[in-house]
Structure formats: C-alpha cells, structure tokens
Design a protein around this nucleic acid. Structure first.
Lengths: 221, 221
DNA sequence: CTGGTACCGTACGGTACGGTTCGGCAACAC
DNA sequence: GTGTTGCCGAACCGTACCGTACGGTACCAG
C-alpha cells in the first residue's frame, strides 16, 4: 500500500492539481471532516494560509472547490483492480471478506461520513453533480470492482446467479445493512477492527449460503 | 387506513399541535419536499399565510420549527403493532413481505427522502436531535415493529436465529440494499408498485433461505 | 364603547457569507 | 533599474436570512 498507492496517487492527481493546490484541498477536507457542512471560504483561506482570491482563481467557485475536493479524495481511494484469471473457492471467499472489510472500514470512517453528508445535503437542491461524484466513487465503484470477482466466481463454478447486479446488490445489503444510514444520521456506531472482520465474515458466509453452489439441495430434491 | 389512521392521528397530534399549527407544519413539509434544505422562515410564513412573529411565538426557533415538523410527520406514520399471538408460516411470510413492501415504498417516497436529507445534513454540526428523531422513526421504528414478528416466528418454529437484532439487521439489508443511499445521493431510482412487490418478495425469500428452519440440511449432514 | 387577545403583513437591525478589489511583496525577466 | 507575474492579507460590497418590533385588523368580554 505505501509505495504503490502513493505512486498512483501522485501520478494521477499531480496531473490535475499542483502541489500547493493539493495542500489547499487537504485543508478543505480536514475542515469538512471537523466542522461538517458549515464551511466558509474565509475559514478555508485561513486554514490553508492562502487568500480567497487565489481560491476563486483556482477553483472558480465555492461549488468548484467542493467538487475539486471530492474528486481529489476519490482519486486517493482508487484501488487497482485485481488480476486473477482463476481463483479457487478459498481465495474467492477471502477476497469477498476483504471487500466487505474495506467497505465497512470506509463507511464508518470520518472522511466518508463527512463527504456523504455533504453530497446528500446538496443532492436536494441545485443538482450539483456532487452527489453523482460520491455515488460514482461509492456504491458504483464497489460494484465495478466486485462484479468481475463475482463473474470469475461463477465461471469457476463456485457461485450461482442469473443477474450479476442482483447478486452484487445482495452482497452490498448483507454487508452494509443499516449501518451507513445510522452513522449518517449521527448515531455513534463504533466498530473496532475485530467487529468489522466478524461482520464481514458473517456477511460473506450468508452470501455464500444464498449464491454458493448448492450441491446438497439437489440431492434432497 | 382512512378512518382508523385519521382517528389515531387526530387524537395524538391534536393534543400536541392545534389545527392551525398543523396547517403550518403541513406547509413546512411541502416546502421541504419541494425546495429541499433551502427553507427560510419568510417563505414558510408566505406559504402558510401566517406571520413570522407567529412562527417564532409557536415554535421558538427555526430549529424548533423543523423538529416540530419532523415529529409531527413521525406521528402520522405511526402504525399499530400487529397482534397475532400465533401465526403459521404463510402469514409470517406475507407479513414480512408486507413490511418490506411498505418500507421500500416509504424509503423511495418524496417525504422520506427530503426529511432524511435534512436530518443527515444537520447531523454533522450542531447536534440538533433532529437526526435522532429521524433515526427513531426510521430504522429503529422498523426494528421495534419487526422484532416481535421475528420472535413469534421463532417461537412458532418457522425461524431459527440466536440474536434477534442480527436477524433484523439482515432482513433490513436484504430489503434496502443500496437503494436508500442511492436515492439520498440523488440518483433517480424509480420503483413502481410491481417492482417494489417483486423486490420485497425476493428479499423475504432470501431471508427465509438464511433463517428459515432448515429441515433438509440436517438430513444430509 | 373600551380593553384585551391573537394574529397577519411588513419593515428593520444585525450578522454571516460569497465574491471582488486593492495594496503590498517576493521572484523573475530584461 | 523597470515591468510582469503570482500570491497573500485585508478591506469592501451586495445579498440573504434570522429574529424582533411595530402598525393594523378581527374577534371576544365586560
């Protein structure tokens, strides 16, 4: 994670934002996490030690600053797609558990909560595109990463399903349950690492119970 | 629904808010649904044909007006708990399907979306209690209504689970999946009545596959 | 008729914030 | 030296909005 991810990050995002600009965006992100939606340009300028004029010159707009921040954060989170062309049942399961674990950790993290809150509060009025960005890097990204895995699992004969989207959707539900809506609404759902792992394993087990190849039932039927 | 619900509604909420006040709250709710979070006292006054002074006299505060609106809406949604002391498997299933159907219909409804957005956007800063109200009338209310049903189902021998909360949580996930977060983020998830019914039935079927009494597996093992 | 109460409509004060402008300063070009 | 550029800090402007206050009206009590 340390070098590879950092390499991707710098290579991709440096093309889009200069070093100094990234410092500003980082300050914005910290402010969003700490103070929630009440984010003023003046406080951003103060916190990043830059002038408001520069903010407007670089990002054009308050909205532009926010979307830039969200996009920049999205870049940092991007992960390389897995490669395996064949996978046995054990690695399939552990892959799914890994997905679930990462996802739960992200969901309950400060940054995700703050950004989702901001995007949701803007999704109502002024179709800001900010919601769609979070959407694209939230559920949609998970689906884009997970679907190939599920397909490989089906091709390898470990999974059975007609519709991949439906299978993904089910896995999502089993993992996330009501956790995300509760943290977004302000409940203090404190999950330590051990609990997250347990939840992830339970969800994966249930998913296999639903979509794993059912050898036993065929014999009884 | 028409007479019984209206009776409960008037009897409960009339004790808390006068007729005129409820008109005002209804106007507030309409504004929230239509215009999202950008809700000013002046527009409320204009829309409800009342003076701002009256608003402040009645509700004290902008925050007070919002919480009163949310509470009032919560009262309208309250449903009588089911009574059945014994239930066969068919009615258990249809009860669960009914729950799922209602829940999906509510989740994708304008009012729920608007109120959840508002509560979430306030949950970050200024612990307004508004989030906890929505929480109490959202996931928690569903759990409070559903847990007894699950317990009855277990007592009757149709379901098997250790932890009721965990079973509920799983049912929630199977029903809601990623739908709620997507609509909150602004995606247009249009579900007609038929689709909702299909989703509800599929989720219930999956729930029974996970927590229904497994007679077959015991024989094979 | 007089006083009181409850309410509407509107105008006002205060403040917060988005966005613009200006002075100053450092670095670099020539 | 004299521009020119890029940025910071701060002052400034217009506007939106919360909360309050005041005048006016309808209704009821005595």
């Amino acid at each position: 994670m340390p070098s590879a991810l950092a390499a991707i990050q710098s290579q991709v995002s440096e093309a889009k934002f200069s070093k100094r600009q990234q410092e500003v965006l980082s300050a914005v992100l910290n402010l969003i996490v700490r103070e929630g939606g009440s984010l003023t340009m003046e406080r951003v300028a103060k916190s990043a030690s830059c002038s408001k004029e520069t903010l407007y010159k670089w990002f054009g707009d308050r909205q532009g600053l926010l979307t830039a921040t969200v996009q920049w954060q999205a870049l940092k989170v991007q992960v390389s797609p897995l490669d395996g062309s064949t996978l046995d049942e054990a690695t399939l399961m552990s892959t799914l558990v890994g997905f679930a674990r990462d996802w739960l950790a992200v969901l309950t993290g400060d940054v995700s909560i703050a950004l989702n809150r901001m995007a949701i509060s803007q999704a109502g009025s002024a179709s800001s595109g900010l919601g769609s960005i979070v959407l694209k890097n939230g559920p949609f990204a998970m689906r884009r990463r997970l679907l190939p895995v599920l397909m490989l699992g089906r091709n390898a004969g470990h999974l059975e399903f007609k519709d991949g989207d439906e299978a993904f959707s089910c896995f999502f539900g089993l993992v996330v349950r009501d956790i995300q809506i509760r943290v977004l609404l302000g409940e203090d759902v404190s999950l330590d690492e051990a609990q997250i792992v347990r939840e992830a394993e339970a969800a994966t087990r249930q998913f296999f119970a639903l979509y794993g190849k059912k050898i036993k039932l065929k014999s009884t039927k």
